[in-house]
């Protein structure tokens, strides 16, 4: 009978890395979290005759749309980075590009937000602004967390073995995909619909 000791129990490799499973669970929770917010938003909208209410500043449709394309491009570079990783290639070129595109999205978004604030769209003036700021701020927070994670991966991967790199990269990549995929939904609901 073969016995397992504390040494070789560590070397058993699971089919899916623990951190990847963990981030999938986190994404499920996040989806339900935003699901709750978005359904509240849709319900609030559906009861109103005029939406968005009169007297609100016009939202910047076009800049935000361009910005959305930037964010989607960052998901594509992330994909390329993960593809390289799965082929055991250690390039950080695409990771750098992802961080750059994400940062551009974030800065433009923050700039737009400040501009809208200056135009006089405050919370406390009704549901529209409340939902607008809550949803945008929460998504912004997630982008920020995603960017920090990406930078963390960028710093940490160089000193790790390849399999660690792959699971780290995939973990953060999945979170980034979630953050990116969320934005078109929010864009449609807030800016267009």
């Amino acid at each position: 009978m073969d016995t397992l000791t504390s040494q070789n129990i560590k070397t058993q490799k699971p089919p899916v890395a623990g951190s990847v499973l963990g981030i999938i669970m986190v994404i499920i929770v996040e989806m339900m979290f935003f699901g709750g917010l978005i359904s509240a938003f849709i319900l609030a909208k559906s009861g109103k005759v005029e939406w968005p209410p009169a007297g609100q500043p016009r939202l910047p449709f076009f800049i935000t749309f361009t910005n959305m394309l930037v964010l989607l491009a960052s998901a594509y570079t992330m994909l390329l980075y993960l593809k390289d990783l799965s082929k055991d290639m250690l390039t950080v070129k695409f990771l750098k590009m992802t961080i750059l595109l994400g940062a551009i999205f974030y800065i433009v978004q923050a700039y737009e937000w400040v501009r809208i604030l200056i135009f006089g769209m405050h919370t406390g003036r009704g549901l529209f602004t409340s939902f607008f700021y809550t949803l945008i701020a929460l998504h912004g927070l997630h982008v920020l967390i995603g960017l920090l994670l990406l930078i963390w991966v960028f710093k940490i991967v160089k000193n790790q073995q390849l399999d660690k790199q792959q699971s780290f990269g995939l973990t953060v990549g999945l979170f980034w995909f979630f953050v990116v995929a969320l934005w078109p939904v929010l864009y449609y609901l807030i800016y267009l619909d």
């Binding site: 929770v29 996040e30 989806m31 339900m32 979290f33 935003f34 699901g35 709750g36 917010l37 359904s39 509240a40 319900l43 609030a44 009861g47 109103k48 919370t123 406390g124 009704g126 549901l127 409340s130 939902f131 700021y133 809550t134 929460l138």
Partner: peptide, 29 residues
Amino acid sequence: VGPLVAGTFMLLLDINVGTGFYDAYRGGD
């Protein structure tokens, strides 16, 4: 748990920032 955390978040904002998600007077529910 996600929707409840979302709801709690909105309630916190209602109390501290005055968003009015649950305030019928301001269109909330």
